[in-house]
């Protein structure tokens, strides 16, 4: 250091002199970890990471996704497993999905997040200026939305609350 400090002798004496200030500094940081919002994030992060490290490796990637994502994630998985890779799927309006799902913006409510999970199938949300709206091949009936578009008069029930229906060819959706 540049100024004002008496040079310390090398070796054990100097090391002994460094122990007390070091202990004081670390004690201060420990207090800050308990009482401050800034340093207090460290123990929280440490505990969470420790729990995660012990529990997560026993889960499969799919189990971790199911545990992490909102209730619309299984619908995306259903779409991926139930449609051919060239499918273009008509989905309910983004606002309808958002309003009927608790929590933050659900995965199903954005074309980008849907495409993230059903690629290479293409999502088209009702009402969006989607470039592939003319090529729709399937319709997702979700919470009975869309039932009247492909099966007018069909009574809503648990069996058709979430369902996949073929979209009539040559009849692009109009909004």
């Amino acid at each position: 250091m540049s100024g004002g400090r008496r040079p310390l002798p090398p070796g054990r004496t100097g090391r002994r002199r460094a122990v007390v200030p070091s202990a004081l500094l670390l004690g201060l940081i420990a207090l800050l970890a308990i009482f401050s919002d800034w340093v207090g994030t460290y123990p929280t992060m440490a505990v969470r990471s420790s729990i995660l490290f012990r529990s997560a490796p026993s889960m499969t990637a799919e189990q971790r996704r199911m545990a992490s994502y909102d209730e619309t994630y299984p619908v995306l998985r259903f779409l991926r497993e139930s449609t051919p890779s060239e499918a273009v799927i008509l989905l309910p309006p983004e606002k309808f999905i958002d309003e009927n799902t608790p929590g933050d913006i659900p995965l199903l409510a954005s074309p980008s997040s849907v495409y993230n999970f059903i690629y290479p199938r293409v999502p088209v949300h009702w009402g969006d200026p989607s470039p592939w709206r003319e090529r729709v091949t399937h319709l997702l009936v979700w919470k009975h939305w869309g039932l009247d578009l492909v099966a007018p008069g069909e009574a809503p029930g648990p069996e058709n609350e979430i369902a996949l229906r073929p979209w009539p060819p040559g009849r692009p959706p109009v909004w």
Binding site: P7, L8, G14, R17, P21
Partner: peptide, 16 residues
């Protein structure tokens, strides 16, 4: 800050 640097350098020995 010079006072902070000086205070923190007391946590180190001047040896090697």
């Amino acid at each position: 800050l010079p006072p902070i640097r000086q205070a923190l350098s007391r946590c180190e020995s001047a040896g090697p």
